[in-house]
C-alpha cells in the first residue's frame, strides 16, 4: 500500500444559491461541499457514501473540473488542476473519466452507441479509420457487449447494457482514474452485482483507481479499500473498509451500518440506530482526528 497518489483533493468548497440579483437575493446559500479533503492511491478504490443531497456528485464534478470548486485544491499526479484553463485541462481529461448514475440520461439518444464509445478516441485523435472501429469493437468485448451492437441507438438497450456502454466510453482512453457516481443505484438488483464485478475486473486489468460513490454501504464493502462517509457537505469519517464495518465511530456511520439489510436470520433484530440528520449539521471548522492509523473521524461527538 505504498502506491503514490493519483489524486489529492484538499479543502474543497462549493456552495449554490444566495444570488446577488434582485430576485434571488433571499435564496439561502447551500454549502454543497464544505471543506472536503481526501486522496486516492494509484489503483485504489475509495468509497464515498452519504445520503442523497450530501454533496457526493458535487465532489465528483469538482474533482474532474466539470464544475470549478469555489476554493480548494485538486491535484492529479501532483499537478494542480483548479488553476488550469480548459485547453490546458484537455490532456488531463484523457486520464480521468466519469460514469454517471442514470444510464438513460447518460447516453445521447441521437448517437449510435458505437460512435458514442468512439468519441473520446476521436476527440483526442488517438485512433481513426478501421483502427478506430477495431478498438471500439475491442472495448465492447471488454465490457461484455456484442460488437455488432455498435450501430444501434441507445433506446434498444436495457439499463445494465447502457451502463456497460458508458463504462466502455469511460475506459476508451485507458484512464488512470474514474469517478463512478452511483453507477448501480438505478439498476435492477440482479444486474447490480454484474456491474460491480465488471468494475472489479477492469480494475485488475487496467490498474484503474476509482472514486466510487454510493448512497449506502452495502456494495461498497466488496469494492472499496477505504470508505469516506459524507454528511451534509462534510466527510465525517474516513477509514479502511474493515475499520468502518468493525469499529464505526461517528453516529452517522453507525446509523448507515445499521440500515444495511442482513441476510443472516440470527442477526435480523439488530436495533435500528436513529440519527437525525437535520439536527446534526457537521460544524464548519471541526477538525478530523486520527483515532487509529488511517482512521479519521470528525471531532464532533465521538462515541
Amino acid at each position: 500500500m505504498t502506491q503514490p497518489n493519483v489524486l489529492e483533493a484538499k479543502n474543497l468548497m462549493r456552495s449554490f444559491g444566495g444570488g446577488t440579483g434582485f430576485f434571488d437575493r433571499n435564496k439561502p446559500v447551500i454549502h454543497a461541499i464544505n471543506g472536503v479533503s481526501f486522496e486516492i492511491a494509484e489503483g485504489e478504490t475509495l468509497g464515498l457514501v452519504g445520503e442523497s443531497g450530501s454533496g457526493k456528485s458535487t465532489i465528483g464534478r469538482a474533482v474532474l473540473q466539470l464544475e470549478k470548486p469555489d476554493s480548494g485544491s485538486v491535484k492529479f499526479r501532483g499537478t494542480e488542476l483548479t488553476t488550469l484553463s480548459p485547453p490546458q485541462l484537455k490532456p488531463y481529461r484523457k486520464h480521468m473519466q466519469m460514469i454517471f448514475q442514470d444510464p438513460y440520461s447518460a447516453l445521447n439518444p441521437r448517437m449510435k452507441v458505437g460512435n458514442f464509445v468512439a468519441e473520446p478516441l476521436v476527440v483526442h485523435q488517438v485512433e481513426s479509420g478501421s483502427a478506430l472501429t477495431d478498438r471500439v469493437a475491442e472495448l465492447f468485448q471488454t465490457v461484455g457487449l456484442d460488437p455488432s451492437f455498435m450501430s444501434r441507438y441507445p433506446h434498444e438497450f436495457s439499463g445494465g447494457q447502457r451502463q456497460r456502454i458508458n463504462i466502455a466510453r469511460a475506459i476508451a482512453l485507458n484512464p488512470a482514474f474514474i469517478v463512478a457516481d452511483e453507477p448501480i443505484t438505478a439498476l435492477d438488483v440482479s444486474i447490480q452485482a454484474q456491474i460491480v464485478n465488471l468494475f472489479q475486473d477492469l480494475q485488475d486489468q487496467l490498474g484503474l483507481a476509482y472514486l466510487f460513490i454510493a448512497h449506502d454501504l452495502s456494495m461498497v464493502r466488496y469494492l472499496c479499500s477505504r470508505v469516506a462517509v459524507m454528511l451534509r457537505g462534510r466527510i465525517v469519517e474516513l477509514a479502511p473498509t474493515e475499520q468502518i464495518f468493525a469499529d464505526p465511530r461517528h453516529p452517522y456511520t453507525q446509523s448507515l451500518l445499521a440500515a444495511i439489510p442482513v441476510p443472516d436470520p440470527d442477526r435480523k433484530h439488530r436495533p435500528r440506530i436513529p440519527f437525525n440528520v437535520a439536527r446534526n449539521i457537521p460544524p464548519r471548522d471541526a477538525p478530523m482526528i486520527e483515532v487509529s492509523p488511517g482512521h479519521y473521524v470528525l471531532d464532533q461527538e465521538i462515541q
Binding site: R61, L64, L66, L89, K90, R93, K94, M96, Q97, M98, F100, Q101, D102, S105, A106, L107, N108, M111, F116, E119, P120, V123, H124, N166, R169, L173
Partner: peptide, 22 residues
C-alpha cells in the same frame, strides 16, 4: 444539464463539438 452533455465535457470535447453532435 443532461448527463451525456456533461460526459462529453468530461472527455474534453470542444464546445463546438458538443453543440454540433450532442
Amino acid at each position: 444539464e443532461r448527463e451525456f452533455v456533461q460526459s462529453a465535457h468530461a472527455i474534453g470535447a470542444s464546445t463546438m463539438r458538443i453543440m454540433f453532435f450532442h
